[in-house]
Amino acid sequence: MSTPLLVPQLGNEITEAEVTEWLHAPGDTVEAGEPLVMITTTKMAMELEAPVAGVMGAIVLGEGEIAEVGATLTVIETA
């Protein structure tokens, strides 16, 4: 099964966020809740955590790319 990691809704005025740093690489085994990626909005920077335990898939949006709220950043594959 694969679970996507999405850019979350961050308050009613923010529509997009920028990926600033990947903390894991594709193929890494990650725990649920482990920080995967740093994103930043105009106001704040935050870490997004793995939604489930599993193996991280391809990076859909790389460092410096700007994503709309709801966009997929990567997926986590579980057996």
């Binding site: 600033t20 909005t41 700007i66």
Partner: peptide, 25 residues
């Protein structure tokens, strides 16, 4: 600092061919 690098990537003028750029750009 990721913020520092992020600002470095931004355009220095906020009006693009299609009007104002987003504040992330």
């Amino acid at each position: 600092s990721a913020t520092f690098r992020q600002i470095k990537r931004k355009a220095r003028f906020g009006i693009g061919p299609d009007g104002p750029l987003s504040p992330l750009r």
